[in-house]
Design a protein around this nucleic acid. Structure first.
Lengths: 235, 235
DNA sequence: TCGTCGATTTGAACATGTTCAAATCGTAGC
DNA sequence: GCTACGATTTGAACATGTTCAAATCGACGA
């Protein structure tokens, strides 16, 4: 019933070969001909498994998100409070991509191109966004927050984590320590800010800001991501 | 003393021809061969004036920034208060790029690529960033603010304006009304936030946040952009 | 075993950004 | 007017992502 190498297996093989090359030489510096040759395939065959070079990056990021969800949940189990859960949420993501800065460049490349499948806000990447926001939503878990904020905070945390990833792309410090440090400072500050939200003087303008963001469609409906990630992950 | 067509003239001609094509068909969809032909030059000659296709976009953005500074100052002259100055700062930028969404895509493309000349945070684009932050700095003008905040707020406004531009890329509403509306809501909210900064309860965590951003090199020295824009603009 | 049909593989061909050695042009100095 | 030299122009050639028609493979029914 099983071929020794199914289509999925070969695809995975090409995928891993390509990632290794991307990590080693960078995305731009790796040609599809090299990917094909290193995979033991002809150029055309490589294109049979991935529609395009960026499509490989797309698969990579899908993998990153699923892995993030997995590791985050694992970490959440041991975390004792919100601070620790946020640490898990941020650092597990950074752990996963730590060695892939040369690759992530490609992911950010088409972020602003609304017509591109890898666009940050396009329909094709919505699933990944939702998965990602879901992680931060779970980090908040049953935190007591007014409902409107409760649905918006995960989006803010997601935005922060996007910013952190961007920062990491430029972080040349060993092990990207700078990025880790920034994350470690951002987390307690976010918590303080959250507490400040209870002060009416602060809450009023924040409410207005949220209303504006909501109206601008920058805050997606929470229901969408909350359902996600429950229905089994990979193969 | 002047050739009828100096190198600069020809360069400007190629530039304008290219922009027209980019606007009409989009950046990706326009080939350098088309640019060359439409300019009445051979392919190689076009490359004599611009090192690369993106280099044209680089020149465009330089132009945008200078024009922004010009229009903003013009507008500041008539503005009666901070709110109006911020409106000028934001809307003049949006005015300039309003018809160029298909072109701006290329500008955002290499934002995250730290090795690319058009990178958002790379050394090659520092001048443009400084010019841009300078505009927001001038908008604040002599606003009374604690020194540390006074140097950071222009950076925050700059970041907001980057976000607005990104939003505009995805804004399909006629005339990009959505983006305008978002800007108009963001401005008074920013002002309210600024006032909140006087409340110690708020100011303390904000101070910490600024310290973190400063340490992360995300807030450049204010002196750099304040000097700028005083020494004459274009030709 | 043979024929058939879909899955897979192949490599040539194409489009397009970029490079470059050679040709051409224009002018300054004689 | 002529020459030399730098500025400009040219188009062929190259690299690389992508496409595609044709070849090959492999399993299944007859």
């Amino acid at each position: 019933m099983f071929k020794s190498t199914s289509k999925d297996d070969t695809r995975a093989h090409v995928f891993n070969t390509a990632l290794a090359l991307f990590r080693e030489k960078g995305f731009n510096e790796t040609t599809m001909r090299e990917v094909a040759k290193a995979s033991g395939l002809s150029l055309g065959a490589a294109y049979y498994y991935f529609r395009s070079k960026e499509d490989i990056v797309g698969a990579y990021y899908e993998h990153v998100q699923i892995e993030h969800l997995r590791r985050a949940r694992e970490g959440f189990a041991d975390a004792r409070n919100l601070k620790q859960r946020l640490e898990v949420a941020f650092h597990s993501k950074l752990d996963i991509i730590a060695d892939d800065r040369r690759l992530l460049v490609a992911l950010f490349r088409y972020g602003g191109d609304s017509e591109h499948p890898l666009s940050w806000f396009g329909p094709d990447t919505q699933r990944q966004r939702d998965l990602s926001m879901g992680v931060f939503d779970e980090a908040l878990s049953d935190e007591k927050l007014p409902a409107d904020l409760r649905d918006a905070v995960p989006v803010m945390l997601w935005a922060m984590h996007m910013g952190l990833m961007l920062y990491m792309l430029f972080d040349e410090s060993p092990q990207q320590q700078q990025t880790r440090k920034l994350a470690d400072q951002a987390i307690p500050l976010s918590l303080q800010m959250t507490k400040l939200l209870r002060v009416p003087l602060v809450r009023t303008p924040i409410r207005k800001a949220l209303a504006a963001l909501l109206e601008a469609d920058l805050i997606p409906p929470a229901a969408r991501w909350r359902a996600l990630g429950t229905e089994g992950g990979e193969a």
